[in-house]
Design a protein around this nucleic acid. Structure first.
Lengths: 158, 158
DNA sequence: TTAGGTGCAAATTCTTTGCACCCTG
DNA sequence: CAGGGTGCAAAGAATTTGCACCTAA
């Protein structure tokens, strides 16, 4: 999937604005790396971004791509699929169920919900393949992390 | 979360039966590794399983834990959270949307669905923390992989 | 000008593999 | 007893880090 040109422009403008606001330097590398993600809708990996950017800028290094990607993520300019950084985790429960994932510490807890169990894949999924499982992931902040953040903000005032 | 004793027994029985059916040897290591996952509901990582099993069997090696975990997964005796093996993947689309993930090749495609957008976190999530985002992941087989499997089965007859 | 950013190469972390010995069936 | 399974140590893959040079503001 390729993103339409006005949409890309808007994304680039937003990117530049956020960088300025955050006092982050607008380097060639950062611009090209962000553009690479902004103009592609196929959820590229760091390696894929690297290869794409190298076409236009043959000297970028892979580690700059990584540093920039995490930076963009911290600035909420991109989102991440699959919790990279996370190790594989296993579950012996085979019956369908859902998850609550803490966005701060990554703790994953089972979530039982009849309503979710009964969700049917939408028509739009039919265009992509054969849908088998509909799994809901509720993301939020677990109580332990909420407590921690509260304590921290009491100190920093932030 | 600890799993109730009858439930564990049932899981162990199922495990032993599947191993026999598949002609997989029931070694001490495999039994203890499966038990470790079966009796815990907290989605342990390979490292955590390793530490748990070592208490009862100090000589197991981490690589046996890994080999056994992937084996259990192949036998559909355990499921995996977070697509380990997968690299981090990025997305510049910030508006909420959902995903169709191919269970065979891992291809992730955006899925638009108003019904999913409007899903509210269930009451049971309130007990775990503050819910912020409800994300649906439809898992299935994409057309490309379905085609591949079809071609393969034409040959193997499986 | 100068602090933050980059490239390089080496380090880390998680996971996999080759090989000789061991144990289940 | 035979062939799959295991432990060890070493290899791989993805990501991170230290350091000296570079460049946007």
């Amino acid at each position: 999937m390729t993103i339409s040109s006005p949409e890309i422009k808007q994304r680039m403008a937003h990117f530049e604005q956020v960088c300025r606001t955050s006092g982050i330097k607008l380097t060639h590398q950062r611009i090209e790396i962000f553009r690479e993600i902004a103009q592609k809708g196929d959820h590229p990996s760091a390696e894929m971004v690297y290869r794409g950017v190298r076409k236009r800028m043959p000297t970028v290094s892979l580690d700059t791509v990584y540093r920039t990607l995490w930076l963009l993520k911290d600035l909420d300019l991109v989102t991440m699929l699959e919790s990279a950084h996370e190790k594989a985790r296993f579950d012996a429960r085979l019956s369908p169920h859902h998850h609550f994932v803490c966005m701060s510490c990554g703790l994953t807890q089972d979530l039982n919900c009849k309503e979710f169990d009964n969700l049917k894949p939408p028509k739009s999924a039919k265009a992509l393949g054969q849908a088998l499982i509909t799994h809901v992931e509720v993301r939020g902040i677990c109580f332990k992390c909420a407590e921690k953040e509260k304590t921290a903000s009491d100190k920093t005032g932030r």
